[in-house]
Design a protein around this nucleic acid. Structure first.
Lengths: 205, 205
DNA sequence: GTCTATATCACGATAGAC
DNA sequence: GTCTATCGTGATATAGAC
């Protein structure tokens, strides 16, 4: 027995608002997206929006929340195990990253992040923790294990992760920008594999 | 005999508009900056703005133009000469980049760039050509020379530049974000030097 | 070149009928 | 839960006096 808003009919409208808002915020940023546009796209009047959300800010925060919960940590495939493979681990990690880069919904997330990064403190913190720290942590563990197994030369694992990750991020930024203008990304897309090659040659023993 | 607008008095107003606009656009983005705010800060009425610029867009493009002409290529110190020094060249290049990162006006520029990157096609093109291509070109030349002199291992110079640059960019982004929130950047600021060390160890023969 | 005054518009949000 | 109607605000931009 559900006792929430819209008891028996499906909660379609609220979800539709969220879906439409996600697309619009991603494309136009916070200021560029108006409640008017959202309502129009959803197919209701502006005033009806306020039956579901207190105000525009509440919609945005809900969008931001949902967007970050998209799991980057894939299957949590035992790091201790896979890190032993050395180069293959990095190839796999990079592949996952590449897939995210070219995934449509993640592309929107990334765009929204970049647009609002300097305007929303909450988003900045999520960027640092979800985007950066999380990946550095995974990579650091892996590099540490590789060092223990004498696969790579000894270095600060955190620093190594930073070096490895920053290039992935920069490629992602460039590709997202290029796709935004419908430029071809074939040339740069092979860069991911080259990056792994270069990095591995730099650190392997 | 000047025959332009404001014949004998100084053209202070137009320059002041530009100066104020630069600060405001950098802080608030395009949508967040209103002609009202600009006028108020300058100390004139909104309508007076239109004696100097056709519209808001024209002001913004002028700001963007000026902001990119800030020369990264410093003294154009003969690359052929300095590249021979190998590691010292990279240290010098990175030092310049670090100075830019911590320079207040360049910090504003970078923030503006990040805010509007996905909203303004012209800015994207300027980013690609001025920000990326230019630096890749300088570094590629240097790496090529280093290879010729057997200072570093043989690789695609462009690719090497990409690898070297992307980390600098990522550090810059992180530092700018942290400074935005008044977080301490002492820990990350030494990363620049570590990056050069790591990279040099990766490529030197 | 600056001012006052105004036109026109889009925005976020609310009140109240259905 | 959605609608119509409306308010208040702040935005870009223009016309015309000084």
């Amino acid at each position: 027995m559900p006792e929430n808003t819209t008891p028996h009919k499906r909660t379609g409208t609220k979800q539709k608002i969220l879906k439409v808002s996600t697309a619009l915020f991603s494309e136009l940023g916070y200021k560029g997206t108006s409640v008017r546009k959202i309502a129009k796209e959803v197919g209701i009047r502006e005033s009806a929006i306020y039956n579901h959300y207190k105000n525009k800010e509440e919609i945005f925060l809900e969008v931001a929340k949902g967007i970050f919960s998209s799991p980057f940590s894939q299957g949590n495939t035992d790091i201790k195990e896979s890190a032993m493979k050395g180069k293959a681990f990095l190839q796999n990690f990079t592949m996952q990253y590449k897939l995210l880069t070219f995934d449509k919904s993640n592309e929107n997330m990334f765009r929204l992040l970049m647009i609002e990064l300097f305007q929303n403190k909450e988003l900045r913190e999520q960027f640092m923790s979800e985007f950066h720290d999380k990946n550095v942590k995974i990579l650091s563990e892996a590099f540490f294990i590789m060092m223990q197994n004498s696969l790579i030369r000894s270095q600060d694992p955190m620093m190594m992760s930073y070096e490895f990750l920053s290039t992935l991020f920069y490629m992602r930024l460039q590709i997202t920008l290029m796709r935004f203008d419908n430029d071809s990304t074939t040339a740069i897309s092979t860069q991911f594999e080259k990056h792994v090659e270069f990095f591995w040659e730099s650190v392997r023993i």
